[in-house]
Computed example of a mutant assay.
Amino acid sequence: MAADSTFASLRAAWPIQRRVLGALLMREVLTRYGRHNIGFLWLFVEPMLFTLGVTALWSLTGASHGTSLPIVSFALTGYSSVLLWRNMPSRSIGAVKPNLSLMYHRQVKVLDILLARLMLEGAGATISFTVLSLIFISIEWIQPPEDLLLVIAGWAILAWFGISLALLLAALAERSEIVDKLWHPAAYLIFPLSGAAFLVEILPKNAQDFLLYVPMVHCTEMIRDGYFGSKFHAHYTPSYPIVINAVLTLLALAQLRKVSREVIPE
């Protein structure tokens, strides 16, 4: 009986939650991109331009990154992955204060504001990755993924990592400004370790053992395994980033609960 009551309450709350997130998403799109030029299309055009720039740079310089794989495929899977997890915390840190006026609405919570931004950021990176993949495949610069489901699984786990990390950092940033100061240099320092610019198999064994402690490496290797797994030996364990994500999510929700109690609407 208690379980049925809980399920009924959740089912009744879902339409409200959906409308709240929908309204916050629309507000975020208009606030960030406006109605001028190409408007909300910048949502995925901006990450596309970044990825194209890196792809062109690596292609023109002949960077092989220690592998014989096509550089376009290597750059697409690598840098698109970076944009997915790196931009989420950057957009979430400091997101609460500019939206304090929304807290007057009983249905709007701190988590809703953050989720709206994260959904928008994740959608932009995902659309960019998908559109670029389709374009490169259509002009035969890259081959279609060998295992599409594996690509989707790796991308989903990486997105979960970005979301959980962003929620935790956003909550901690509300309690200390130093989090915002440290994240930006930390993001640049973490980038070389994320697996975007190398394959694990080309590294010495000691380096492999060390880098496989970095959860993003497993996700990037999964995505590349799904794209061109027959051309290299991928190193990853899906359960590892999943456990890390679960821990980060629990910590983030605990911190957000504390922050929500301290937020005072303006």
Rank of each mutant, 00 (worst) to 15 (best):
M1I: 09
A2F: 12
A2C: 12
A2S: 11
L10P: 02
R11K: 09
W14A: 14
I16E: 15
R18L: 09
G22H: 04
A23G: 02
A23T: 05
L24N: 00
F40L: 06
W42G: 09
W42M: 10
P47T: 06
T51C: 13
T51D: 12
L60M: 10
L60G: 08
L60K: 11
G62N: 01
S68K: 06
P70Y: 01
I71K: 04
T77N: 11
G78C: 08
Y79D: 06
Y79H: 12
S80F: 05
S81Y: 06
V82W: 07
W85R: 00
W85V: 07
R86Y: 05
N87Y: 12
S90G: 04
R91V: 11
I93T: 02
K97A: 15
L102Q: 10
L102E: 15
H105V: 05
H105M: 06
K109M: 13
V110K: 03
I113E: 01
L118P: 02
L120A: 11
E121K: 10
E121T: 13
A125F: 08
T130A: 15
L132W: 04
L132E: 03
S133D: 02
L134G: 05
F136L: 10
I142P: 00
P144K: 08
E146A: 07
D147E: 04
L148Q: 00
L148H: 04
L150E: 02
G154I: 09
L158E: 04
L158G: 03
A159F: 05
W160R: 00
F161A: 09
G162M: 04
I163E: 13
S164H: 14
L165G: 01
A166F: 10
A170P: 05
L172F: 03
A173F: 09
E174K: 07
E177R: 05
D180A: 11
H184I: 14
A187N: 07
A187C: 04
Y188F: 13
Y188L: 10
S194H: 02
A197C: 13
L199I: 05
P204A: 10
Q208M: 07
D209R: 05
D209Y: 12
D209P: 03
F210W: 04
M216K: 01
E221V: 03
E221Q: 11
M222A: 03
D225K: 07
G226V: 02
F228I: 11
G229P: 05
K231Q: 07
F232R: 12
H233T: 10
H233A: 14
H235F: 15
Y240M: 09
P241L: 14
P241K: 14
I242G: 06
N245I: 01
V247L: 03
T249I: 07
L250N: 00
L251S: 10
A252V: 15
L253V: 09
A254F: 15
Q255W: 06
R257P: 03
R257D: 02
R257G: 11
V259F: 14
